[in-house]
Nucleic acid binder design. Structure first.
Lengths: 242, 242
DNA sequence: GCAAAATCTGCGGGATCCCGCAAGACAGAT
DNA sequence: ATCTGTCTTGCGGGATCCCGCAGATTTTGC
């Protein structure tokens, strides 16, 4: 049995290495990659079936790497090991996990034992293990109380990328007005209508930009989500030509 | 001699602890804090004169903590130890360092020796030590070729927060038109005028939102910068009432 | 199968944004 | 003193955004 570790921080990498060795004595080879790009390469080359993956790496983040790996071999077991439980990450992961695949999401702040237990559960038992805190975010994002629909999320991404209403309409095959309707919902949910500078009555935010700001501060989107979205956009733009 | 370590990751914290012990035998007490808030508290309580500070912590990031610490005792020596050399961080740091203070900025990817050397240089010799890569970013941001003025940077922050032109004008005591002029410069420098969807000619970005997106992707601003800016904004809003 | 609810769409209009043009203010150089 | 470059401000106008209204279409629930 082999395990591939994809993690850019050397300290964390060696810690992971030790944890894998301790939790999985049946593992006889541990590979290491220091970013998503070489991680993909190693996974392809060794047909890795067991991967521990950091999110937030330079050169190629964990979600992108996992996406291409899963596209080639959907039965790969991947444990995501991240510092944060940002909704952007959680959404990003659950968006790419294939039907019936075994995966996990545990935080770096979790205890030694939790990590080792997760390693065994996922790699040996093919079970899904989601950290409690992450699970909370996942629930909240799905629960429609103060949660965001898939469409709302998409339009959020689009304005974060700086697309105009017209572009968004074209991209999703909608009319201009429909896009604006969705925007209105979004503004409502992000609570972007608050007044500012109340001393002389008038003072609003620029709704569009404010929405992005609030979404960033609430961790609905983050750098890596933006990066992925930009890549998707360019792909779509390229595809339109053919 | 005492050293205070402010770092949220336990692994990195203990690594730092060891490095400090090894590099500074004359140090007889090493304090540790797991975020900016308790870091501030410990610094105040122990009158710490030597601090190693992570940027990017939850609860209170390194720059905010450093700002209040330096406000109280401007001769404190602080070594910033960070994963990234984002321009947002570099600007954030050099914005708050007091006149003539000794400080350093080294990356976590630096070698053991570099870290230890920096520790000695800053804490014992009161010298400034800036990592090469960080220095590069600093230079580029100052060099007016493809670099950003202080005013341009400020207006970038303002639109990232979601302020309207009118609000920005009021905040900086400018006319509406001047704000828009600055915006134009900004758009120019961020190269935001590119066409998209060229197949039928028409296709632009929403300049304002796109500018923020590009700035994020170029690491000119990031989560922590936005967080600080939001705090500043609220402070300003509060101050206007009195 | 039908009514209720949600979503999509066009129209119209007020507010804001983006920006060309031109006149004044100010600093530094020759 | 003059000139040049940068920064500021006002005016005007076209494009875009934001959104109320109302009818059409789709989805949902029973």
């Amino acid at each position: 049995m082999e395990v591939l570790i994809v993690e850019d921080d050397p300290l964390h990498r060696s810690y992971l290495h030790d944890a894998v060795r301790a939790a999985l004595p049946e593992c006889d080879l541990v590979l290491e990659a220091e970013n998503g790009k070489v991680g993909e390469g190693l996974a392809r080359q060794h047909h890795s079936a067991h991967i521990v993956m950091d999110l937030q790496m330079s050169e190629r983040n964990g979600i992108e790497a996992a996406r291409t790996i899963w596209k080639e071999r959907p039965d790969t077991r991947i444990l995501f090991w991240s510092n944060y439980a940002d909704e952007a990450y959680v959404r990003g992961v659950s968006r790419i996990v294939p039907e019936g695949a075994a995966y996990g999401y545990v935080l770096k702040s979790a205890s030694d034992d939790r990590l080792k237990l997760a390693l065994r559960s996922i790699f040996m038992e093919s079970q899904c293990v989601i950290d409690r805190e992450v699970r909370g975010v996942q629930q909240k994002s799905l629960g429609h109380v103060n949660g965001f629909t898939e469409v709302e999320y998409e339009i959020l991404i689009d304005i974060a990328l700086g697309l105009t209403d017209r572009m968004i309409a074209r991209r999703h095959n909608l009319s201009l007005r429909s896009v604006q309707n969705r925007l209105q919902q979004l503004y409502e949910k992000l609570d972007v209508y608050q007044r500012i500078g109340e001393d002389d009555g008038e003072g609003r935010y620029n709704l569009r930009s404010r929405a992005v700001a609030v979404a960033l501060m609430r961790k609905l989107i983050n750098y890596s989500a933006l990066e992925r979205a930009e890549a998707d956009l360019n792909e779509w733009l390229g595809g339109k030509h053919s």
